[in-house]
Design a protein around this nucleic acid. Structure first.
Lengths: 206, 206
DNA sequence: ATCAAAATGATACGGCTGTACCATCAAGAG
DNA sequence: CTCTTGATGGTACAGCCGTATCATTTTGAT
């Protein structure tokens, strides 16, 4: 048997190269040759691990969603876990704002995929469409539990506020990406609504 | 002198052909030949009226913004003009949700342009970036006047709520476009926040 | 050592894209 | 009429893209 290579790992490397160049020059402008060059491999290799460009794009999207999920989870853990529901919610929302380079790339590429999915049925059928639903459910659960614990206003409709916050976060994120708004001002807007939902002022920092 | 043609009108026709095919197959997939075919003219003609593809895209974006402005203005007029600030605000927000085919196309193409503008400096410098600011100012003014007239809560921060509503509208619009949400549910979410800003229940229909 | 199969390299091919070039038609001025 | 000039049509060209093909290297089992 010849040299055995960890296909999964190699595919991940190539997928990350795809995301890097997509974040730099836009998803519409990435070709297989660009991905190969960015990953430091030959064009043939990209073909070898992803037979077609469509499969490469699909895997890239999947990897992007995974990385984002981990990012959000890490932020939530860093926010202190259980003790403060509001901090958790805030961490969840802030994590998806394009503040640093990584989240900026994520937002750009994710939006590009969303646009493509509207006219491409193969992409539209992809499970990345489930991720927003998961976020909505998670946020709804957080708000509901905060309400039952008396930390959030008793008259809030958890699901509706969750949808609102996520939509706002997405819209603000796009505005930040387009340079129409700073990440700080976007964060302020979100915090204002958290103040509305969670009365009694913001919790003190750690 | 030979036959004189209204260049502006012809350019408009071609630009609308561009928007149609972009709405159907995605902006990334439109070529000059597609635009020519859709407009029912030869490829040479598209070149004649727009020397380069970049200029065609730029004009297409400009035309799109114009049409959208007219659409919003018409909806606002139809909402009854002055008498009811809330109806005006509601009309403004609902007009940008992808409910019918036209607004769906608008949202898709506009988002495509926004994504392109992030990595294309020629597009980024385009004035379509000013349009959101105009909407924000207009909405802020409406909310401020409603507040002074005692129709909106006295403690609302007009600009902040304007930014929130527009970001939410954009985010919800994208979700609708991606098939994650129905136009009706998106409208409901927006109306809920209008209920919050404008106390005293919704005004009776005309 | 040998052989089979996995991994990698180099390159060619057909198609499509934006642009450029050359010709032709049409109509109003002289 | 005819000539000038704007408006069109047809088409070729160079380049890039995704994909396919052929060849070669590598390595572990026998």
């Amino acid at each position: 048997m010849p040299k055995r290579v960890d296909h999964a790992e190699r595919r991940t490397e190539i997928a990350e190269a795809l995301l890097r160049v997509a974040g730099r020059r836009g998803l519409h402008a990435v070709g297989m040759r660009d991905v190969a060059a960015e990953a430091g491999v030959s064009l043939r290799l990209v073909q070898y691990y992803f037979e077609t460009k469509e499969k490469l794009l699909l895997h890239g999207l999947q990897h992007l969603a995974e990385r984002f999920g981990e990012r959000v989870a890490a932020r939530i853990r860093a926010a202190g876990g259980d003790p403060d529901p509001r901090a958790t919610v805030e961490a969840l929302l802030m994590a998806s704002l394009p503040s640093d380079e990584e989240s900026r790339t994520f937002h750009l590429v994710y939006t590009s995929y969303a646009v493509l999915a509207v006219t491409d049925r193969a992409l539209a059928a992809q499970p990345f469409i489930r991720n927003p639903d998961a976020a909505e459910d998670a946020l709804t659960g957080l708000l509901d539990r905060a309400r039952e614990a008396g930390l959030a206003r008793s008259d809030v409709d958890a699901r509706l506020e969750a949808v609102s916050l996520l939509a706002m976060s997405a819209g603000l994120g796009t505005a930040v990406l387009a340079g129409q708004r700073t990440p700080e001002s976007a964060a302020e807007v979100l915090r204002h609504h958290l103040d509305r939902i969670f009365p009694g002022g913001r919790p003190a920092e750690a």
